[in-house]
Amino acid sequence: MRHHLILRVVTKLLVGMIMLFALYVQFHGDYSPGGGFQAGVIMAVAFILYGLVFSVGQVQQVLPVWLVHKLVALGVLIYAGTGVYSMLTGYAFLDYAALSPHHPSHGQHWGILLVEAGVGITVTAVMVAIHYAFVGRAPLISDEEW
C-alpha cells in the first residue's frame, strides 16, 4: 500500500487518537462501559492498523516480537501477582482490601485498576502477537483461488 498517500496520512493521525481512546477506555472503565479487555483490543487495533497500512516491519521496530511475547506473560503475572500480594499480607487471594488495609474500598479501587491493567497488557500483546503470527505466514494460496 505504498502509494495510498491519503491512507497513510490518515493512519498517522488516527493511530494516536486510537491509542488515546484505548487509554481512556482502560482507565475510565470504573465509571463508564469499558475496561481492560476492550482497551486492550483497541490498543492492539492501533498497532495492527499501522502494520497493515505501512508494514509489519515498521511496527515491529516499535513493538518487537520478543517484547510482545514477554508482555503476553507480564499481564497475566500482574493480575495473579495482585492476588499473591494479598495472600502474602494475610488476606484471601485477590482480596484487594490488602492494598489498603485501613480503607478497604480504596484498596478495591487500586486492585481493580491493577488487574485491569494486567488484562489490558495481555490482551493488547496477544492480539498483536496473533496479528504478527498471521502476517508472518507466507500465503501458499494459488492464484486461481483468489
Partner: peptide
C-alpha cells in the same frame, strides 16, 4: 464495598 459506579466493572 467497592465504590465504583460501573457495577459491571
Amino acid at each position: 464495598e467497592i465504590g465504583v459506579p460501573n457495577v459491571v466493572t
